[in-house]
Design a protein around this nucleic acid. Structure first.
Lengths: 160, 160
DNA sequence: CATTGCGTTCAATCCGTATTGAACATAATA
DNA sequence: TATTATGTTCAATACGGATTGAACGCAATG
């Protein structure tokens, strides 16, 4: 598959975007694809991604779908062409929120359930569980603060 | 090395704590060690960590040091014993801040530098770079908002 | 000064997960 | 319906980073 030449600056952004998303545990290609789309003034098809980033067909397909799920890329219709074209969503706040919801909030949610389950495991008469109860109560307290912060308009405004 | 029996609830917290820190890209053992220390009412030595968590000597040593660097565990002196004992810091906000500073803030910082460098790469007369400039400006804007949010008392209070 | 107990280091290994690519599914076109 | 152009799936693989454990350094003790 014949490569594609990129503006040096865009190339750097793709490299660093890939490294960033890699370091955040999101995989390298999603960062690369997003960077490529973000710096493209026209929509791009899967084949463009393959050529520009030298990634496999499957990788392009899966990466772009992941970005779509996070609302970081959207499919656009190009008349007279039946390929799927994509462009970047530049609303960083929204994207960040999606990713956070997909990674953090989920954990938070079953964190609450987990604390309940843990406390239910403690037998009523369990003497030496007093310290454990204390610790769980302390976790609950922090969890409450975190939930409050998450709901705060300042933060939600940033992530809107 | 002979194992150690743990309270079932603590065992669950260790399992889940390990899974959580693993999923956050911090490695499994640090989460496990922290959970073990957090639910221990007495300080613990490296050997205790090895036995309780069935991890290697090196793993215990490195994990506990990482926690120390984040301020999530501290060394305590036990008179008449020359082993190093550790206990958990339960100030979650502070710990979270340390971890964030160590993982995110760093990236943010050289993100700024990177944008400067990228813009410097654009030749003054480069016509078709207009779109790239636009995009970089848009990134700067968001970066500014993020920096502002980070400095906000509400967030800093939570992370104090 | 030899020995013992403890903590640290780091090269080798292991393990999870990101990535590939061939096979398949689907839809448009001739 | 056969063919061509596209997108998807998933088992196999490659890769990076987490984990191990033997070797080492150091300090206390006899």
């Amino acid at each position: 598959m014949t490569p594609v030449e990129l503006h040096p600056v865009v190339k750097r952004f793709i490299e660093d975007g890939g490294a960033l998303s890699q370091s955040l545990g999101l995989g390298r290609v999603v960062g690369q694809i997003y960077a490529f789309l973000y710096f493209s003034d026209v929509p791009r098809a899967l084949g463009d991604l393959q050529r520009a980033l030298r990634i496999s067909k499957g990788g392009a397909s899966m990466g772009v779908r992941q970005l779509e799920q996070w609302g970081a890329a959207r499919k656009v219709w190009v008349p007279g062409d039946r390929k799927d074209y994509y462009e970047a969503n530049d609303w960083f706040g929204r994207i960040l929120k999606s990713v956070l919801m997909d990674t953090m909030a989920k954990k938070m949610a079953d964190g609450t359930a987990f604390l309940d389950a843990a406390e239910a495991m403690l037998k009523p008469g369990d003497e030496n569980a007093a310290f454990i109860r204390e610790r769980i109560a302390h976790m609950r307290e922090f969890q409450g603060k975190a939930a409050k912060l998450w709901k705060n308009p300042l933060l939600q405004g940033f992530l809107k």
